[in-house]
Structures are given as C-alpha cells and as structure tokens.
C-alpha cells in the first residue's frame, strides 16, 4: 500500500509536470509570437526598401505653336512640340494638348501627332486637349479623327470617322487592316477598290525596318503606326507611317561603325543618299537590303507624291529635293506621302 507521503509526492510531481507543460506551451506561444513579429518586421523593412510612392495623377499642359506643319520652315518647331509631348509622358500620366492658338495645321502634322498619342496611350497615358479657335484649323482637326483619340472638354463631335484609318502593330507581318486601308485609298483616288503592289511592298519594308531600328529590350520601340486619311471630294489620300525606334541614321551609323557619318556633310545628306542611291557609289557601302531604295522608288515612279521623311534630326523631301538638318531630333522615323489623281495609276483588282 502506498503511503500518504508517497501519494503526496506523486501528486506534487504530477502538478509540477503540468505547470512545466503549461509553461513550455506559454514559452512556445511567446516564441511563435516573437517569430511572427520579427517576420512581419522584416517584411515591413523589405516593403519599405522597395516602396516607391504611386505616380501622382499630374496633368501637364503643352501648348502648340501657331503653325503646326512639317514643311521645311516649320518642321523644327512642330517636332519640338511633339518631342515635348513624348518627354512629358515620362513624367505625367495625363497630358493636356492645347491647340487653341493654332492658325495652320497640316495633315502630316496631325497624323504624326496622332501616331505619338496612340503610341503613348498603349502605355496608360491619358490625353485631353482643346481645339484651335481658328476655323479652318479646327475643321482639319475635326475631320482627322483626332476626337477618337483625344478626349476634349468641348462637345463637338468628329465629323468623319470613316475617313481616317489608323493601324498599329508591333509585329513584322502587316495585319489585314493595313491591306484594307490601301484598297480603300485606291477606291478614294481611282474609283477602284484594289491592290497597289508597289505601295504595299514599300510599306512592308517600312515595317521590317521598324524591327531593325528598334532599341534592344524595348518592346515599345517595335511598335509602328500607319495612318490614312481620305479626302473623297479631292480624290486624295494622305498617308503616314511612323515608328519609335532609334531612327534610320543611327542604325546606318551603328552598322558602319560610325564610318558613314564622316563621308557626308550632315545627317540630312546621308538620309537623302541612303534612299536615293540604295547602294552608295561614294562609299561603296552596300545599303541593299535595307529596303530604303524601294520606298524612294514610289516617288521616282510617280506612284506617290510629296514623299517626306524625318529621321533623327534629318528632314528630307524628295519632291522639293530638300534636305535639312533640324534643330530638334526625333527618336524614330516618320514617313509622309500623298496619292491623288496626278500620280501614276497603279491599281489592280
């Protein structure tokens, strides 16, 4: 028979064990809590080190010059305005384009502006704007399809949406909409909705060059925009193609390890020669394969008129045989041309 003392000790032991177990559990809980706190503390530290405050919803207003055209005289100020828009897009997420004081605006400038806006909208930038007070400039803007792209505080509606087509892409193969746009443009000028093989061949070269000129690891620079505007009353179509890459001159200079630059007076002469000669006799440098000659031949064969190219700081107009170095440099390449009844008819059913 266990004695009273033994029983007392036994129950005291059991009691002690219980207390120990309780304490252990408390300690474990405390340790777990401590671990949790330190873990959360570390997470907070990590979050604080990686934290960048969200971009403030800032609005930047950019005012257009009075003359917004791509002619030789005003191309620099137009490009400066467009460069400003591009520059501000990196700082603000809402851009207000003020066209109030525009007295003259060309189709080329509108199409170029639309290309830049469309491109930046892909990356989450919102645009608002105002229309020119000057009547004919306002009319040009209305007809351009500008309304579809930019929200305005004014209530006017775009008059002719169907008269403008904008095709964008970031791929090498042209989408079907591009061919549709070309077919429709033939209908507007020649009354026949059909193919224009030389024009399409040149546009494919432009698209291919976009990939060649794109910046490495920058998907944005592979995007291209093709704009078409129809003027049925004049049987005239305005075209523009733009990309946001490094530009033709930079690509040619890099390919030739800077040798080309020293062989020409300036970038504009270099650009003119690259298109006109295809293979340049002065340098023996093979530009075959860049497709630039194919694009120039559209002008030479009279398929298009008023072919104008801006790349980097060079401005070239083949119609007027103009080559000018601009004050402002454009990142990318911009082509503009027109087709009307004075051009060589090149259309097939």
């Amino acid at each position: 028979m266990p004695t009273k003392k033994y029983l007392k000790n036994k129950s005291a032991k059991i009691e002690r064990k219980k207390i120990k177990r309780k304490n252990r559990s408390k300690i474990r809980k405390f340790e777990n809590h401590n671990n949790y706190i330190s873990k959360r503390h570390n997470q907070l530290k990590l979050f604080e080190s990686n934290y960048t405050p969200p971009k403030k919803a800032t609005i930047t207003s950019i005012f257009s010059p009075a003359v917004l055209t791509l002619g030789q005289k005003n191309a620099s100020s137009t490009l400066k305005f467009i460069s400003n828009i591009k520059h501000e897009c990196s700082k603000s997420n809402r851009i207000d384009i003020r066209l109030d004081h525009v007295l003259e605006i060309s189709n080329g400038a509108i199409i170029m502006l639309l290309g830049v806006i469309q491109d930046r909208k892909h990356f989450g930038i919102n645009f608002t704007g105002s229309f020119p007070l000057h009547e004919s400039s306002r009319e040009s803007i209305y007809r351009s399809g500008f309304m579809d792209v930019v929200k305005t505080s004014q209530t006017a509606k775009s008059k002719i949406n169907s008269n403008a087509i904008l095709v964008s892409g970031a791929i090498n193969k042209p989408p079907d909409e591009l061919y549709t746009a070309v077919h429709k443009s033939m209908k507007c000028v020649w009354g026949i909705e059909g193919r224009c093989p030389l024009l399409c061949g040149a546009i494919i070269e432009m698209i291919r060059n976009t990939v060649d000129h794109a910046f490495v690891n920058d998907s944005r620079s592979k995007t291209w925009h093709f704009n078409v505007r129809f003027d049925n009353s004049l049987n005239k179509v305005y075209f523009a193609f733009s990309d946001q890459g490094s530009g033709i001159i930079e690509t040619l200079v890099n390919k030739s390890s800077n040798v080309i630059r020293h062989l020409f007076d300036n970038n504009a002469t270099l650009l003119y020669s690259a298109f006109e000669s295809g293979t340049d006799s002065r340098t023996g440098h093979q530009w075959r394969g860049t497709g630039l000659r194919t694009i120039y031949e559209l002008h030479e064969d009279g398929i298009v008129k008023n072919l104008t190219i801006i790349s980097n700081n060079a401005y070239v107009s083949f119609e007027r045989k103009t080559r000018v170095v601009l004050d402002e440099s454009l990142s990318g390449t911009y082509y503009y041309w027109e087709i009307d009844l004075t051009c060589t008819k090149h259309v097939f059913k």
Partner: peptide, 12 residues
C-alpha cells in the same frame, strides 16, 4: 502577279 506586293527583301 495577283499578290498584294513584295518588298525587295523578299526577292533578295
């Protein structure tokens, strides 16, 4: 004949 058009790089 009959196509939408060729860039020179295709022929090349």
């Amino acid at each position: 004949d009959g196509t939408e058009g060729f860039p020179n790089s295709f022929f090349s």
